[in-house]
Computed example of a mutant assay.
Amino acid sequence: MEQITVLFSGAAGDGVRSLGVTYARVLSRWGWHSFVYDDYQSLIRGGHNFSIVTTRRGERMFAHWDTVDGIVALNQDTVDRHLGRLRDSGFMVYDSDAVKNPPGKGLAGDHPQPRLREIIEERWL
């Protein structure tokens, strides 16, 4: 049985919930079962929110895992709050404009990091 858990996190209003739901829907269409846990610490724009999406091929699941295989960080606050959840073999995708102190864990090292915000604006806005 294959399983992966990814945490999506950023400021309220950044589309964190939409990222998690879209990721779950895509994998669902590929035959994976998904469980989405949304945490709303703040509904006020700028507060911290996150979604944990656990997906599994094979049998269904009815809960999420607190330890995650990957983190999609939309801001530095995400790295500061959630790095402890990341498995040793985990990965992190982040906006290099917003994350000034990346942990170096599971990242590309000295390779230039893509600017997530620029990619999104260039392709979809």
Rank of each mutant, 00 (worst) to 15 (best):
V6Q: 08
L7C: 04
L7I: 04
D14M: 13
G15I: 05
V16T: 06
R17V: 12
T22M: 15
Y23A: 10
A24C: 08
R25C: 11
S34V: 13
D39W: 09
L43C: 13
L43Y: 11
I44H: 13
G46N: 07
G46E: 13
G46P: 03
G47Y: 08
G47C: 10
F50I: 03
S51T: 15
I52M: 04
I52A: 00
I52T: 13
T54I: 13
G58M: 02
E59P: 03
A63G: 00
W65R: 15
A73H: 00
Q76W: 01
T78K: 08
V79D: 11
R81V: 13
L83D: 15
L86W: 04
L86F: 07
D88H: 13
S89I: 03
V93E: 08
S96P: 05
S96Q: 08
V99L: 09
V99C: 07
K100S: 02
P102N: 00
P103V: 11
K105G: 04
L107Y: 06
L107M: 10
A108V: 11
G109C: 05
D110T: 05
H111S: 01
H111F: 09
P114K: 00
I119D: 02
I120P: 01
E121V: 11
R123P: 05
W124L: 15
W124K: 06
